[in-house]
């Protein structure tokens, strides 16, 4: 079944390429012989594509379809048209008042701020000699290795609400506060703590890509730049380093978007409940699992998922526009 699906899409793609003047049947025949010639290639991609279609493509398509239905996981879904989307943007008070603003604040800090921080760090580290560079890079990368669940242990102890929590104990000692603060339950602090933790763990493969990109820039270009009148390091970065490593910047941007979306569940882990206290740390993914796996309104939850995927797509197009190689490069 999956084989057919790829074959169909293949036909559409390359049909125009094979001799535009010949008749349709000839064209299909030509395509078939062409495809037969490459039968080994298809065999090579088959295992991956089968899994890809079953566990990524079909779920996304099914998600789009479900988002237009009412579905409670037991009865057959019933068609609702655009109602889910209409409700999402007009009726869902929690979504509009908490989830969207929270997600926006979270995304702005973890996304762009984390991204710029990653670039700054990578640039600074790239200036160091190689032995030292490796150690620093390892130190920055290590947090992203820590699995989210495991680190909850550390965070909960650090931010615990009584005086045995590290942050509380520290603040008490220096006289900044006079009584312990319930950091993880208090709605004023939860989101900020989530942001700090997510930035902490964000120096992942995107960061490594940026670092490698900076190190790969041809050193002669800097020499040439100096002759052409580049006077400061800042100009060097802006006119040589960044333009030369646009592809890596793009890859890192996409990894940054994915990280931002994925680290959404951290609020629920920290506060230990979904929904988070007063929806203070409620992000898009939590909202999906709240509706999907607690209230079993799967159609509505799917509508939120599709909204998230579209958001990702638009963001990546925006970055693609920023980092697209210019005609003359």
């Amino acid at each position: 079944m999956t084989g057919n699906a790829t074959a169909l899409s293949d036909k559409q793609s390359s049909a125009p390429a094979v001799g535009t003047k010949s008749s349709v049947s000839q064209r299909i025949h030509g395509l078939m012989t062409e495809m037969w010639k490459y039968r080994l290639s298809y065999a090579f991609i088959f295992p991956f594509m089968a899994m890809f279609i079953i566990f990524i493509l079909i779920p996304v398509v099914a998600g789009v379809l479900l988002s237009f239905t009412y579905f409670n996981a037991f009865d057959f879904p019933t068609w609702r048209g655009w109602l889910n989307y209409q409700n999402l943007f007009s009726q869902d008070v929690v979504f509009l008042q908490h989830v969207l603003p929270n997600s926006f604040k979270f995304a702005v800090f973890v996304g762009p701020v984390g991204y710029i921080l990653a670039f700054l760090l990578a640039w600074l580290i790239s200036q160091l000699p190689s032995t030292l560079r490796t150690w620093y890079a390892l130190a920055m990368y290590a947090p992203s290795l820590s699995a989210g669940v495991a680190m909850t242990v550390v965070w909960t102890v650090m931010f615990t609400g009584d005086r045995s929590g590290y942050i509380n104990s520290f603040l008490l000692k220096w006289g900044i506060i006079d009584k312990p603060v319930y950091l993880l339950i208090d709605q004023d602090y939860l989101l900020n703590i989530m942001i700090v933790i997510s930035i902490w763990s964000s120096m992942g493969i995107g960061f490594l890509a940026i670092l490698a990109g900076i190190l790969n820039v041809d050193k002669q270009l800097y020499e040439a730049g100096k002759i052409d009148g580049i006077s400061s390091r800042l100009q060097e970065v802006w006119y040589i380093t960044v333009p030369m490593m646009k592809p890596q910047m793009m890859f890192a941007a996409i990894m940054s978007i994915v990280h931002t979306i994925k680290s959404g569940g951290i609020g629920v882990q920290l506060s230990g409940s979904n929904p988070t206290p007063n929806y203070a740390g409620q992000l898009l993914l939590d909202h999906i699992s709240d509706y999907g796996f607690i209230r079993f309104e799967l159609g509505y939850a799917s509508a939120i998922s599709i909204f998230v995927l579209l958001l990702c797509y638009v963001l990546s197009k925006f970055f693609g526009f920023l980092f697209a190689p210019k005609e003359d490069e």
Binding site: A62, G63, K262, G264, F293, S305
Partner: peptide, 13 residues
């Protein structure tokens, strides 16, 4: 698919 967090389509999965 690089930028799809599969968590978002957990239900159809």
């Amino acid at each position: 698919a690089l930028l799809f967090a599969t968590e978002a389509v957990a239900i159809p999965r």
